[in-house]
Design a protein around this nucleic acid. Structure first.
Lengths: 211, 211
DNA sequence: TAGATTGTTAATCGATTAACAATC
DNA sequence: TAGATTGTTAATCGATTAACAATC
């Protein structure tokens, strides 16, 4: 794997985990680490650590290891966490509120700029630092602000309609909490799905099949 | 792959998705489906569908296909969704509440029997059908009810302490929303992690690397 | 220099896809 | 019976691990 080749999703999905462990090491004032030690802490093989990192560049130094601070910074850049992508949240229900209030978007590459809901009762209420807006104002708001992504915390049946509107105004990156299969129907989109119920069913399977 | 061999996690994690699509087909009163058509709908290969299903048994009929209703039922049993595993939720914050209120646990193999929080202000408040209990009553409650799993919606720093208590009373199956690495430190546990922030960073990476 | 540890190539392992004989 | 589609084996592809020469 040489730089420039496209990176496999297996590697990409491991990056946030490297980033987290490196941040922790940095907080503990560890300043250098070898692939062997990092692998131990993270419960993976040293080979995998070196292979993964070398997809993006030679960040280490033979005979020494990796500088924790530098490596953390490199991964931060690879992930693009400094982008401050402008995002809007649709759906201020249970999950929408939890997401809005709980996550530190800034540190994750995003800035949450607005929340929308179609329930009149929710419109105008405060959600963290934001005021819930009426979903009818979606297009107007987005024409005023350059929005990069939408977090969809609405029920499956509402998704298609909302998606048509978002897609039309050029918002094509989604964080999707519903079971609506976005990428199948909307081309040129980037979708990350959160399927909590699939996850819970998997737990059920594994409990059911404990040896 | 013959029945009895242990199933790979890749296959296991696809089961809930099969289950969802089959449920939908069944709701639409479709009563038979071929691996080819199911594969089309789900955007996978027909080979994969047949290989996956045949890990568990020969549920189809040559020249005909699969009975939707029967296949759905089979996967329901494989996943163990009729178990009604008794679960408790720890942490009635943003995510804990959303989880408690939003998910239909019964259909996912669980029954949520209690919620705990250590914040006195939350104790006694209503969370869906449950009343939030003081976390100090954890052991007492669990000694009275046979609890199978715990949903951990508490911050990383609280996890270790709570986990010690749960582990001691024999609760070893966890749905973990924190970044605390449970399986590394607690043996003989089954853990499914929900790492929302990793997921969001992955979205960031992919936006950042759009070709 | 000697020791350590990377970057990278080669070997292995596992997962996905293709092919087709079995059979409804 | 002929057509369709499974169950299953074999081929391919990709991801992980091992090994080691390069080098700090």
């Amino acid at each position: 794997m040489s730089k420039g080749d496209s990176i496999s999703m297996s590697v990409i999905r491991r990056l946030p985990r490297y980033y987290r462990f490196l941040s922790e090491l940095n907080d503990q004032n560890v300043d250098k680490i070898s692939s062997t030690k990092l692998a131990q802490i993270m419960n993976v093989t040293a080979s995998q650590v070196r292979q993964d990192l070398n997809c993006f560049g030679g960040f280490g130094q033979q005979g020494y290891g990796y500088s924790v601070k530098q490596l953390q910074k490199e991964i931060e850049n690879i992930l693009g966490l400094n982008n401050n992508y402008k995002a809007i949240l649709i759906g201020a229900g249970n999950f929408g509120s939890a997401v809005a209030k709980h996550l530190d978007f800034k540190r994750l590459g995003f800035e949450l700029t607005a929340c929308f809901d179609k329930d009149e009762a929710k419109v105008g209420t405060q959600l963290g630092k934001l005021k819930v807006q009426n979903e009818t104002e979606l297009e107007l708001f987005c024409s005023k602000h350059k929005i990069d992504a939408a977090f969809l915390c609405i029920p499956k049946l509402s998704v298609e309609n909302t998606l048509n509107r978002l897609y039309k105004i050029g918002i094509k990156n989604y964080w999707n909490f519903s079971h609506f299969d976005i990428s199948a129907k909307y081309k040129d989109t980037i979708v990350e799905n959160v399927h909590l119920s699939d996850n819970l069913m998997t737990l059920c399977y594994r409990m059911n099949n404990r040896k």
